[in-house]
Design a protein around this nucleic acid. Structure first.
Lengths: 349, 349
DNA sequence: AGGCGAAATTAGAACGATTCAAATCTATTA
DNA sequence: TAATAGATTTGAATCGTTCTAATTTCGCCT
């Protein structure tokens, strides 16, 4: 075996060329599998590549060819399993397409998002997949990424107006229909007094889900009492704290609730306890997202599956398509969500 | 306001230089904040940079300076919240140090790991943080990354021998002690028939945890039945599927289980249901990792806190230190873990 | 032998930045 | 006024690859 020297300079095309008495250009052709080069030369070069332990310098190649082999993935909260799954899906698809993923995590801060985008863009990604921070604004994002790099937005809309020349693609979830399905399911279970619980109405996703809920209620000819809308931070703890609001006042108490998402639903189930009700027995609950925990809670949670890993793959596909054809009209995909019925959405007792 | 042209070529130093009648070299100096350049020239150049919307091409700079501004992060299972947190920590620290994270996810397959490393290395990362796949081998990893790129291993040892010239750093968890503590806790709760559940014995982390478990059992003078060792893929679903194996055969069934990690523990709790047991009431369970979900599951999970985000920051620090001083002797850090007692480790009933 | 087309190879200029040595420009001072 | 030190600026080479256009090599035919 050759002396795989543990230390030394990096090997370049020149080293290989010199090593087997051929020109740099020829070696380059061999590397890229060109049919131009003679069988025996190719063998000789390949042997030398192996022997010297050559590793391709893609950055140099990209510079020369004015291409890119990377895509930036900017996630508002990587620690959230929903987004981690999404990221895994993105990376999987990009990887098989020969792209490498530049990761950026913003901790849901628009300021940090701006810095992260600014840093990533300098590495010349071919495109960007962005799941915006809660308070992210179109104008600032555009300033950071410029107009040369295609963007796929995931999950959230940006605040403010985006100039019409920046035609970015979007991948959103079908919030409206999902919430409608959940509501229809509860109605089919016999419930008539159904609340919409959690989230803040200034967020686009919350508004969409609430709208779906209202549609289903109206379609069924059911009236909605004002105290059946309880807002909360989309976290488990705040949801648990806010549960009591459903049962205050003189109006009729609801027997079921469509929740903004799974975290809120799990929190509500916890909070119901303190108000003498038990989710899945005398109060029905639905969530949104189908996080891993949803299937494991007690009772298990009826929710809307969003298949985050598949969404990741899809977002990557959208970006790859855009790179293939930069002129194609930009589009928005609303990914369907699927109702998963479990124990928490019990019939009206 | 200047016409922020929505489309056009990419702006280079040449454009800026031409744009304000100065040489490329001067613009470069301005960019890097050199004190050499005259105040008024600097202002003129900066104005031009802004006006033309220049974006720095770090790849070109890296090529010329023979430097790198990226670090590869290769994770065996990104969808696992433990690793997602770890990744977030790594990215956070690398980001503030001016590095960008190249992400790679291997799905715990050594084969895919090899491919991913091969692809990432071509992008010339300054270093690699690797959480190896279960069956990853030192020899193959070394072949993929070469000897020019420093590596920090996280969480698992590689199979086989690593040549002595490859001095890689390590960040490991105190698996043995953690599992011992969990086991001792269960014994203190009155349990005598305790299983070790999940993971595959060919992975170093599994072996270490299993060893800690055995130590505690032996120290307490307890015997261990062979069917109390159930292996599984370290995922929730496979764990749920394998739960039944604990209760098969003619031997005495265990009343508690030390699990390889939280994902497996959560899966086991699910699987227990289908075998007529309920975790936290008539069967005690412990996990490992303390993922966010552990505190929120029903019952909440007794586990070993590993502070994955802090580990991520630490791994990044180790790599940065290594980049600062490539000659420093390589080291291994064994991070302590802390037992967090919650509901799942109920006393023997 | 010479000629010819096809096949194989290569020289050298890019790509967009950095860097060093050298050139130019300002003040100052003798 | 010329010389000189210091402050600025710049020309040209370079990083490792690709690519075009040109050149060399080769087999084959007359």
């Amino acid at each position: 075996m050759e002396s795989q020297t543990p230390v030394g300079r990096k090997i370049t095309l020149n080293d290989i060329a010199a090593g087997c008495g051929v020109s740099r250009a020829t070696v380059s052709l061999v590397l890229r599998g060109s049919p131009l080069v003679n069988k025996v030369t190719r063998a000789r070069v390949e042997e030398e590549l192996r022997k010297q332990g050559y590793v391709y310098n893609r950055a140099a190649a990209n510079l020369r060819r004015r291409t890119s082999s990377s895509v930036a993935l900017v996630i508002n909260e990587l620690a959230n399993p929903f987004f981690a799954e999404f990221a895994a899906g993105v990376d999987e698809t990009l990887g098989t397409a020969g792209f490498v993923t530049l990761l950026g995590s913003t901790g849901d801060s628009a300021e940090r998002e701006h810095a992260v985008l600014g840093s990533l863009i300098e590495h010349g990604p071919g495109g960007i997949i962005l799941s915006p921070a809660e308070d992210s604004e179109a104008r600032k994002v555009l300033a950071a990424v410029g107009t040369h790099t295609p963007v796929v937005l995931f999950n959230r809309e940006l605040g403010g107006e985006l100039p019409e020349y920046a035609h970015w693609d979007r991948l959103m979830l079908d919030n409206e229909r999902g919430a409608r399905q959940a509501t229809e399911h509860l109605i089919a279970q016999g419930h008539r007094r159904i609340a919409f619980f959690g989230g803040h109405d200034h967020a686009s996703s919350t508004r969409q889900r609430h709208a779906g809920y209202l549609q289903a209620m109206q379609a069924a000819g059911l009236t909605v009492e004002p105290q059946w809308r309880v807002q909360s931070t989309p976290t488990r703890t705040d949801a648990a704290r806010s549960a009591g609001a459903l049962f205050e006042g003189s109006g009729t108490a609801p027997t079921a609730a469509v929740c903004y998402n799974d975290a809120v639903a799990l929190g509500l189930m916890l909070g119901l306890h303190q108000h003498g009700r038990q989710a899945g027995r005398d109060f029905a609950v639905t969530g949104f997202d189908d996080i891993a925990e949803a299937s494991m809670s007690m009772p298990s949670l009826t929710t809307l599956s969003t298949a985050p890993r598949a969404r990741g793959r899809q977002a990557a596909e959208m970006l790859l398509a855009r790179l293939r054809d930069p002129q194609a009209p930009s589009g928005t995909i609303i990914a369907p969500v699927e109702l998963v019925v479990r124990e928490s959405s019990c019939p009206l007792s």
